[in-house]
């Protein structure tokens, strides 16, 4: 463990908590893409299949359970409890366009052709593109509530910090994982225009308005 990875995990946890608080306190999931949340739940499920078979540390196991529980709690809030506030009309990204290529690629490019490893690889590829429906929805609505942009900033920062962690691990322990690293770069690059808007607008107290 290093401060970059710990920072990344905490940013990820913060993002998940911000989202749950936003939906719970406003009792609305307006502006949030349920499809991205489905992809995140799918990502954690595919990645943490070894939750009971591969004990790494208490921290690792606790965080996996928290991520899984939060992901499914968010789906429950969005598709059951506050279903009436879910914005179907703007959350129209076709999930099969993301899930099928990630699954296909995981079968072709992986570290080892075993169930656990292919599922892990699938979760890595899927997570890289899981935010697309959300970014697509923000571009369709043309704006995002500031709480939603804080959520996206924390979520984007998490994998950016993981990239720093991988660079650090490469130089400090010679560890590298090209699949996780390249997918992490793609995932972070997808946030770039959002990061720009967040820093130039939201931090100045303006609303996040995407150029129409």
């Amino acid at each position: 463990m290093n401060i970059f990875r710990l920072g990344g995990d905490l940013a990820h946890l913060l993002a998940i908590i911000i989202l749950l608080l936003k939906i719970w306190t406003t009792r609305s999931c307006a502006g949030i893409s349920g499809k991205s949340q489905i992809l995140f739940a799918l990502t954690f499920t595919a990645r943490y299949l070894d939750l009971f078979t591969n004990f790494v540390s208490v921290y690792n196991s606790v965080m996996k359970v928290v991520y899984l529980a939060a992901a499914y709690a968010t789906l429950y809030l969005m598709y059951v409890k506050f279903k009436a506030t879910y914005d179907h009309n703007h959350d129209t990204f076709r999930l099969e366009f993301l899930i099928l290529p990630a699954a296909g690629l995981a079968l072709i490019i992986n570290h080892e052709f075993s169930i656990i490893e292919v599922m892990w690889t699938f979760s890595i590829y899927l997570e890289a593109v899981a935010i697309l429906p959300q970014l697509f929805m923000v571009s369709k609505t043309g704006e995002a509530e500031s709480i939603t942009s804080h959520y996206l900033f924390a979520l984007g920062s998490y994998r950016a910090l993981y990239i720093v962690n991988w660079v650090y691990r490469y130089y400090s322990e010679g560890f590298y994982d090209m699949i996780a690293t390249l997918a992490g770069v793609v995932q972070t690059v997808l946030y770039c225009d959002f990061f720009y808007l967040y820093i130039t607008k939201v931090l100045k107290g303006k609303k996040l308005q995407l150029p129409a």
Partner: peptide, 10 residues
Amino acid sequence: RSGKSTKDEL
């Protein structure tokens, strides 16, 4: 194999 040791990450 690098892939295996990734599994200590979330």
